[in-house]
């Protein structure tokens, strides 16, 4: 039995096709990442799998339960941490945790061993109201509350959005710890650099899944040659590079432009053609997940 099975699920809101026949499976104990920009349908997928929405077509199972028929069973076996902080801001850290424990019919003591690695970090502030916590602490409290009933599957919707780099890294360490304890985790993020922390990732855009693989293998699917180019004037460089023979794509990538080349491309020829630009450099680079994403998105 897979932890999450999704078969051709679709959901439409008015004229927007939020999800268009999406299918994938997540194995038990896997840390599975949904990587995609805003509007990719990640949140809709989470809301479907946590039984807050019903699909227009298709079906899905979470922990072996059908999301429509067995929605009640799913609710006691999954933990959900929405993208937006949604605990009670006027209750204290401790009260929030006790409250959610009680709603699931458990006590904090029973689950303390599981929650502790996360909760210990905010325990010194347990008398503070949740609304007065910093962003990183709010997120840790939300994760503690989502874990309090020992869920089999954990849904984390953009848990690191709006969190500083150090806290983000800490957060992924915590997820790795939870994975060790056999919890299946489905996590979404708009940050491509976080994808490498997942076992497998699905790249998604505009309601569709572009491809699924391990972070290592997904970059191997990028078969074309890739170069990073720069010049003193980056914008004319972009326009001119696109004119050169053998250039399939050229797009801004951080401080450089990435250039995707086919077999006709020749570096010497390229440098010669763009000799009018000062400070031109070109070097081959390894593709990243983002390059794969851009390639698939344009397909």
């Amino acid at each position: 039995m897979e932890a999450i099975e999704v078969y051709h699920i679709s959901k439409r809101f008015g004229s927007v096709q939020a999800l268009d026949s999406v299918s994938f499976t997540v194995r038990p104990g896997e840390l599975f990442g949904l990587i995609g920009p805003d509007g990719a349908g990640k949140t809709t997928l989470f809301r479907l799998l946590t039984t807050l929405l019903t699909p227009d077509s298709g079906s899905a199972k979470v922990d072996g339960y059908d999301i429509v028929r067995d929605y009640l069973a799913i609710r006691s076996h999954v933990g959900y941490m929405p993208g937006r902080f949604s605990l009670y801001p006027d209750l204290t850290v401790e009260e929030n945790l006790d409250f959610f424990a009680a709603l699931f019919g458990v006590t904090v003591e029973e689950s303390y061993d599981l929650v502790a690695p996360v909760y210990k970090q905010i325990e010194p502030f347990r008398k503070r109201r949740a609304g007065k916590l910093s962003g990183g602490m709010k997120q840790k409290l939300a994760l503690s509350c989502a874990l309090i009933h020992r869920p089999h599957v954990l849904f984390l919707d953009e848990p690191t959005t709006g969190v500083d780099a150090v806290s983000r890294s800490e957060f992924w360490d915590m997820l790795a710890g939870l994975k060790q304890r056999g919890i299946t985790i489905l996590v979404s993020t708009p940050y491509m650099d976080e994808a490498s922390r997942c076992d497998r990732i699905a790249l998604c855009n505009e309601g569709r899944i572009l491809g699924i693989d391990t972070p290592e293998d997904i970059v191997h699917r990028f078969e074309e040659r890739l170069y990073a180019i720069r010049a003193d004037q980056m914008f004319p460089l972009l326009a001119q590079a696109r004119q050169v023979e053998g250039v399939m794509e050229c797009y801004p990538f951080g401080e450089t432009h990435h250039l995707v080349a086919d077999s006709r491309f020749d570096v010497g020829n390229f440098v010669q053609q763009l000799s009018g630009l000062d400070g031109l450099t070109i070097r081959p680079v390894e593709p990243t997940i983002e390059d794969v994403f851009i390639k698939w998105m344009k397909r």
Partner: peptide, 10 residues
Amino acid sequence: GTIEQINVTP
């Protein structure tokens, strides 16, 4: 958003 959090509980 708290109602959402309650809605995923049993």
